[in-house]
Computed example of a mutant assay.
Amino acid sequence: LILTIPAVFLASDFRYQLKKRKILDGYISKAQIRRQFLLRIGSHVLLYAVLTVVITQTIERPFWQMLLAIFAILTPLYFISEWIIRRDGKRDPDYISDVEVARFVRQKGTSQWNTYSSDKHV
């Protein structure tokens, strides 16, 4: 039952990444969209798989020990995956972050992609 919580997160994030992919379709190439999509989904699938293993290995222990193991293992993995994604974004001038997509969705009526970097295929 406890594994359904991250599964729901993974499913909702997958839906978000599909929406993000659709939004980016007119702004960057299909290869870049696919690469960004696979990198983000891949990192979340990896984190979910590790969480599943940690939970199944610590299920017999007290809840606080399970929670401690989850945080001790997943926190560094999460920050490493985010660092890799950000590093990839800095290398690619056409990288569009989740923050930029959220900003675009909020300003949906505008015809320009509002970002901090210069002309991203507007």
Score class of each variant (00 low, 15 high):
residue 43 S to A: 14
residue 62 P to N: 14
residue 86 R to H: 10
residue 37 F to M: 07
residue 65 Q to V: 13
residue 64 W to T: 13
residue 86 R to L: 11
residue 62 P to V: 07
residue 32 Q to L: 08
residue 33 I to F: 05
residue 62 P to T: 10
residue 78 Y to S: 07
residue 72 A to E: 08
residue 81 S to D: 12
residue 49 A to D: 02
residue 66 M to C: 14
residue 13 D to F: 10
residue 51 L to W: 00
residue 84 I to G: 06
residue 72 A to K: 07
residue 37 F to V: 03
residue 31 A to T: 10
residue 15 R to N: 06
residue 87 R to T: 12
residue 27 Y to Q: 06
residue 40 R to N: 10
residue 45 V to I: 15
residue 83 W to P: 01
residue 51 L to D: 01
residue 64 W to Q: 10
residue 73 I to L: 09
residue 17 Q to I: 04
residue 52 T to H: 03
residue 32 Q to A: 06
residue 31 A to Q: 12
residue 57 Q to N: 11
residue 85 I to D: 14
residue 12 S to N: 09
residue 16 Y to Q: 08
residue 44 H to C: 07
residue 69 A to L: 08
residue 37 F to E: 03
residue 83 W to H: 14
residue 19 K to V: 08
residue 47 L to I: 09
residue 54 V to R: 01
residue 38 L to S: 07
residue 44 H to S: 11
residue 29 S to A: 11
residue 83 W to R: 13
residue 77 L to D: 03
residue 30 K to I: 06
residue 35 R to V: 02
residue 62 P to Y: 07
residue 61 R to F: 10
residue 46 L to E: 04
residue 15 R to S: 11
residue 89 G to A: 11
residue 53 V to I: 14
residue 24 L to S: 06
residue 33 I to S: 05
residue 20 K to R: 13
residue 16 Y to T: 08
residue 61 R to A: 13
residue 30 K to E: 08
residue 41 I to N: 04
residue 51 L to Y: 01
residue 24 L to M: 14
residue 71 F to L: 15
residue 48 Y to L: 03
residue 61 R to C: 03
residue 58 T to K: 05
residue 46 L to Q: 05
residue 61 R to D: 11
residue 56 T to W: 06
residue 66 M to W: 04
residue 41 I to R: 04
residue 78 Y to M: 08
residue 47 L to P: 01
residue 50 V to Y: 01
residue 51 L to N: 01
residue 87 R to V: 05
residue 28 I to F: 06
residue 59 I to T: 05
residue 75 T to A: 15
residue 65 Q to Y: 14
residue 37 F to G: 03
residue 83 W to A: 15
residue 14 F to T: 14
residue 33 I to Q: 15
residue 34 R to A: 10
residue 79 F to C: 12
residue 43 S to D: 02
residue 45 V to C: 12
residue 31 A to R: 14
residue 68 L to Y: 12
residue 21 R to Q: 12
residue 73 I to K: 02
residue 36 Q to L: 08
residue 63 F to M: 12
residue 85 I to R: 14
residue 53 V to K: 01
residue 87 R to D: 09
residue 81 S to L: 08
residue 63 F to A: 13
residue 27 Y to H: 13
residue 62 P to W: 05
